[in-house]
Design a protein around this nucleic acid. Structure first.
Lengths: 260, 260
DNA sequence: CGCGCTGTTGAAACTTGTCAAAGTTTGTGG
DNA sequence: CCACAAACTTTGACAAGTTTCAACAGCGCG
């Protein structure tokens, strides 16, 4: 991630809630136990002993270049992926050619949960910048989570969180108008960058206006106009994909403003 | 469920009342092993021995009248609920007063998965007709699924299926226009009724136009107009909440029709 | 230095929402 | 069992928001 500002504090937290600060950072090897993301990712709350056993699962690392597919809809499901670095989008396609971005995923988040239900991936996952993921064989994960209660519970929480997130997006798509959607989108990104130790006020978008539009159920022109409007109103400074939030409260107010 | 046509195959939806009337059957107890839904619900694929152990979990039954809340957003999460009979909706509310229906659930489906992530329910679940559910203490379910591989895997599939379903709704909300959304909605209901042994062509809607609209991201007037249009075009026969699908292919074609 | 991709802006067209009124059904209490 | 109220549904006319189409600007790359 080439954030405009590097990590301002060293990680960490899961949801917007728990905050914890880790002072030192060891060298990263291909193991959860010395991964800087362990408090953000799957290993949350595990004991050192348990962590070691998780290490054995995460055998494979995979590097992707910008534009590469991590997996495609229709491919057999085998792995859950944890994002070590980088930025992804997932999208679904239907026969008639329409498609929609269903999410943007960043460091510490899991990809592939959609594949469990039918043993086949139901969406595409595409790297929006050079990225690295840990591939976790799902059957092994199930095996280990039968042995480690904490891991099991945490995994269930992650899946549930995804469901709750999706409900939020449904809400956004179903009830908000264009500018409200974009405000909600930016505030969400801001919060997630913040949670990862980056500036919540200034960041680079990894996705195009078209991809934002697809995610928000809008045409790219509408997204572009909303950006312009926000800039006119002094809420943002926008230079291409570089965003600076000037007025967070203003954005929040706009987002929750009753329509009409 | 007062379907316009009873079950067309032998999948019997038992209520306490129905049981009394059927002398040949044993009295229905609060157990999965003699529940007619066991092939639709959580116990799929379990061995008789394993089924017995699941029985011990499902201690509580709960009856609800039309309009009753099964749970409310903000309440502590403790149970997963399996619908034995009836029909539910879930909805989310945000501060500014907006709300959205996030789903309609029927027999054999699970409710409450949203609560796992934060130990608190994130939406309301409301009965749209008199209903009955089995309450499954989630911690027990986790415990048992650490012992029964099949149960664990099936539960993961159910959660994943919910995620995939949500992606479908996002697609619908993000890319489809009003009539396409309603067509998709009706075809989905039709399919689910069919899976339960009811007529896929003729059914009663359990929800109001307003609730359909909320789910589809439309105003009730728009839903009403779409129904009228479908009727004019000979796709449906609509009498209040009673729907008869006259032309399934027509609906499908309409649903997948490119916009423009 | 120009080409291609991405983003911005304008005007017109289209879809859906809003407001309003009237029709229909359901539920309740006399 | 009827009458009335409340809730729900339908329909029309108009307004608002978003998309579509089109032209152009800016940036990055070869």
């Amino acid at each position: 991630m080439d954030q405009t500002q590097g990590p301002v504090n060293r990680l960490v937290l899961t949801s917007a809630r728990a905050t914890k600060v880790m002072p030192a950072l060891e060298v990263v090897k291909a193991a959860c136990s010395n991964c800087s993301l362990r408090e953000l990712c799957l290993p949350i709350g595990l004991q050192p002993e348990e962590l070691k056993r998780l290490d054995e699962l995460v055998s494979t690392r995979r590097r992707l270049r910008r534009g590469d597919h991590l997996y495609r809809a229709g491919q057999p499901f085998e792995f859950i992926y944890a994002i070590r670095s980088g930025f992804f989008k997932t999208d679904v396609l239907i026969e008639d050619g329409r498609d929609q971005v269903t999410g943007f995923q960043m460091t510490g988040e899991l990809l592939g949960l959609d594949g469990i239900s039918s043993e086949v991936h139901s969406c595409n996952a595409i790297a929006l910048e050079d990225s690295e993921v840990c591939a976790i064989p799902f059957s092994h994960l199930e095996g280990l989570s039968r042995q480690i209660h904490t891991l099991q519970h945490h995994f269930h929480k992650v899946m549930s969180r995804e469901i709750v997130r999706d409900h939020g997006v449904m809400m956004l798509l179903g009830t908000m108008r264009a500018e409200e959607r974009l405000a909600a989108f930016l505030l969400n990104l801001s919060q997630r960058f913040k949670a990862r130790g980056y500036s919540p006020a200034e960041f680079n978008l990894r996705m195009s206006r078209d991809e934002i539009g697809s995610y928000l159920g809008l045409k790219l022109e509408t997204v572009s106009r909303a950006f312009s409007r926000f800039q006119e109103d002094g809420l943002l400074a926008v230079h291409q994909r570089k965003i600076r939030i000037l007025n967070t409260t203003g954005l929040k107010k706009l987002m929750t403003h009753q329509r009409g």
